[in-house]
Structures are given as structure tokens and as C-alpha cells.
């Protein structure tokens, strides 16, 4: 999995409040589609049918409050990531969606950028500085905790756990041989 970049620039897709997981990835596909590439073909299907046709790698989703509310289905993160979305900036995230983004290595920023950017415009996220820049304003966002940044920096939870378990094994071997 690709390591996280500290600065992202992308073109904006803009949505409102309470974008739920059923419109991001409909429940009827949850047990019929398991290939991430196929999931991507249905991303945002019930909210914005143009999204899949026109999304380009590195595009950024900007939204209002409570993005990703509803189901715990991780496909609602995977389908956007596979469709090429580089990051999501929202006023707030539903908690399981927030965790799923971190665990899939999809960068997120929580701020009010939706107030100062329109669809199709360019936006910059500087993770080191904790700031989103739109054509009209700068929006600081709270830094993610070090524990969460470690998972994102590793490229997601699976590579993070792999590394951690390798570390545990190594320490055990060293302890055994000591």
C-alpha cells in the first residue's frame, strides 16, 4: 500500500450534510460484490450518478456534517478509494466511517472547507501544517492523534498490524536468545 503524502492537491467534488453509507455504496451490493474495482463502479451511485463517470485520480471529496453516517460497511470507503479519491474533507465524520478511512489508509481532514469551495475548484490539504486551503480561505483542522497518524502513515491498519506483529516476533526472538 502507498505511503501517505504530507500534502495533497486535488479537484473538488462537493456534497452536503449526512451523506450516508447507503448512498455511497448501496446495501444491495454488500454481499454480491467483493472486488474493490467493481465496488468503485458503484461509488455514490444513489447520490451522484455522474461521479463514477468523471472522477479522476487524486480528486478530493468535500462535504458537510456527519459524512458516512449509517452502516459500518467498509466498502463505502473502499469504493471511493478505488475510484481514485485522494482524500475526504468534511465538517464532521460519522465515527465508524472515520475509523474505516484511517484503517484503509484514506486521508481525511475535519474542517469547514465546504463553506469556501465549489465543485470543480482546486483544494490543497497540508497534513503537516494541519490546514486546508481553498481558493477563498484557509481552514485549520485538528491534528490526528499520534496513534492514528501511525496507522495512516503505515498505509492502513493491515500493514500497521503486520509491522507491529513482526516487531513483537523480533523482540520475542531477541528475548529468547538473550
Amino acid at each position: 500500500m502507498e505511503r501517505m503524502k504530507s500534502k495533497l492537491v486535488g479537484c473538488v467534488w462537493k456534497y452536503g450534510d449526512d451523506v450516508n453509507t447507503d448512498v455511497i455504496f448501496p446495501g444491495k451490493y454488500t454481499y454480491s460484490i467483493s472486488d474493490p474495482k467493481e465496488m468503485a463502479q458503484h461509488a455514490l451511485e444513489d447520490l451522484d450518478p455522474d461521479f463514477v463517470k468523471n472522477v479522476r485520480p487524486g480528486d478530493i471529496i468535500v462535504a458537510g456534517r456527519n459524512f458516512g453516517c449509517g452502516s459500518s460497511r467498509e466498502q463505502a470507503v473502499v469504493c471511493l478509494k478505488e475510484a481514485g479519491v485522494g482524500a475526504i474533507v468534511a465538517k464532521s465524520f460519522a465515527r465508524i466511517y472515520f475509523r474505516n478511512c484511517i484503517n484503509q489508509g484514506l486521508p481525511i481532514a475535519q474542517c469547514d472547507a465546504a463553506d469556501s469551495v465549489e465543485a470543480g475548484e482546486e483544494l490543497t490539504i497540508d497534513f503537516a501544517a494541519g490546514e486546508v486551503t481553498t481558493p477563498r480561505a484557509e481552514h485549520p483542522f485538528p491534528p490526528l492523534s499520534p496513534e492514528v497518524m501511525d496507522i495512516l502513515a503505515a498505509g492502513g491498519l493491515i500493514p500497521y498490524v503486520q509491522k507491529k506483529l513482526e516487531g513483537d516476533d523480533k523482540r520475542e526472538r531477541e528475548a529468547d536468545s538473550a
Binding site: S72, R73, E74, V77, I96, R99, N100, N103, Q104, S145, E147, V148, G156, L157, I158, V161, K164, L165
Partner: peptide, 19 residues
């Protein structure tokens, strides 16, 4: 509630982070 990947991590490690 948690996601699928972290459920897999709980299976592997028995642990999870929570805020």
C-alpha cells in the same frame, strides 16, 4: 460498532484502539 479491517486486526491481535 467497528469496521471489517479492524475486526480482522482484533482476530489477529486480540486488541483494538478506542478513543
Amino acid at each position: 460498532g467497528i469496521g471489517r479491517t479492524e475486526a480482522a486486526a482484533v482476530m489477529a491481535t486480540g486488541e483494538i484502539w478506542l478513543r
